[in-house]
C-alpha cells in the first residue's frame, strides 16, 4: 500500500470522493500513539476507547478546516489531550466527585481493569503519577514515557517551554517523594 505524507492525506480528505478512505488511513497511522497517550491519562481501557473515538470523530468533523500551521500529529495530539481532560472533568461533574475521588477511581482501575497487567514497579510508578495534578501528569507522561521534546509538548499544550520544565521538575520531585514514602 502506498505510504502517503500527512499533507497528501489531508488533500485526499478534502476531496469528498476520497474523504473516508483518507480518514481511515489517518486513523490507522495515528491510532496507537494517540491511544497510549490517552490511556496514560484515563488508565481504564474502556474510558480510553471512548476518548479515542471522540478524538477521531472530532478530528473528522474538524479536518475540513485544518490549517497546516501545526503538523497533523500535533493537531490530533491536542484534540486527544483536550478530550482526555474533558472526560476527567465530566467524571468529576457527572458523578459529583472531588479530585481525590477521581484519583481513587483511577487508582482502582489500576487493580481492577482487566487490561492492566504490569509488574509491581510499573503499578507503583503509575500510582505515583496519579498523585500529580492533571497537567503535571500530562507533562511527565509525554516527557518520560513518550520522550517528546519540550518544544513539541509546548506546541501541543500551548504552554511555554519554561513552564513545562518547571512542571516536569516538580513532577519528578513529587514522584521521588511518593516512592520514598510508600
Amino acid at each position: 500500500m502506498k505510504e502517503y505524507t500527512d499533507t497528501e492525506l489531508v488533500q485526499l480528505f478534502l476531496d469528498e470522493d476520497t474523504r473516508n478512505y483518507a480518514f481511515e488511513l489517518i486513523v490507522k497511522k495515528y491510532q496507537e500513539k494517540l491511544y497510549w497517550h490517552i490511556r496514560k491519562m484515563m488508565i481504564s481501557h474502556d474510558d480510553t476507547n471512548d476518548v479515542l473515538q471522540n478524538t477521531m470523530i472530532n478530528a473528522y468533523n474538524g479536518l475540513k478546516n485544518f490549517r497546516e500551521e501545526a503538523s497533523l500529529f500535533t493537531w490530533l495530539y491536542r484534540i486527544a489531550t483536550n478530550e482526555a481532560l474533558s472526560a476527567i472533568k465530566r467524571k468529576k461533574r457527572g458523578l459529583f466527585l472531588n479530585l481525590d475521588d477521581v484519583r481513587s477511581q483511577l487508582e482502582r482501575s489500576l487493580t481492577e481493569d482487566p487490561y492492566v497487567n504490569g509488574d509491581d514497579i510499573q503499578i507503583k510508578l503509575q500510582k505515583a503519577i496519579l498523585a500529580l495534578p492533571e497537567k503535571q501528569r500530562l507533562v511527565f507522561n509525554m516527557k518520560y514515557f513518550d520522550e517528546m521534546k519540550y518544544e513539541d509538548i509546548s506546541e501541543i499544550l500551548k504552554t511555554s517551554v519554561g513552564a513545562l520544565k518547571a512542571s516536569f521538575h516538580h513532577a519528578v520531585k513529587k514522584i521521588e517523594k511518593y516512592l520514598e514514602e510508600d
Binding site: 481501557h45 477521531m56 489500576l110 510499573q122 510508578l125 503509575q126 514515557f145 514522584i175 521521588e176
Partner: peptide, 28 residues
C-alpha cells in the same frame, strides 16, 4: 536520573486482542 533505579519507562497497560486491527473499521 534522579528517579529510583529499576524504574521502567514501560506502562502496565495492554489492549484486547485485535483492538487496533479493528478500531478503524468500527470507527468508520
Amino acid at each position: 536520573q534522579n528517579l529510583p533505579e529499576g524504574m521502567k519507562q514501560e506502562t502496565p497497560f495492554s489492549v484486547p486482542e485485535g483492538y487496533f486491527e479493528n478500531f478503524s473499521s468500527r470507527l468508520m
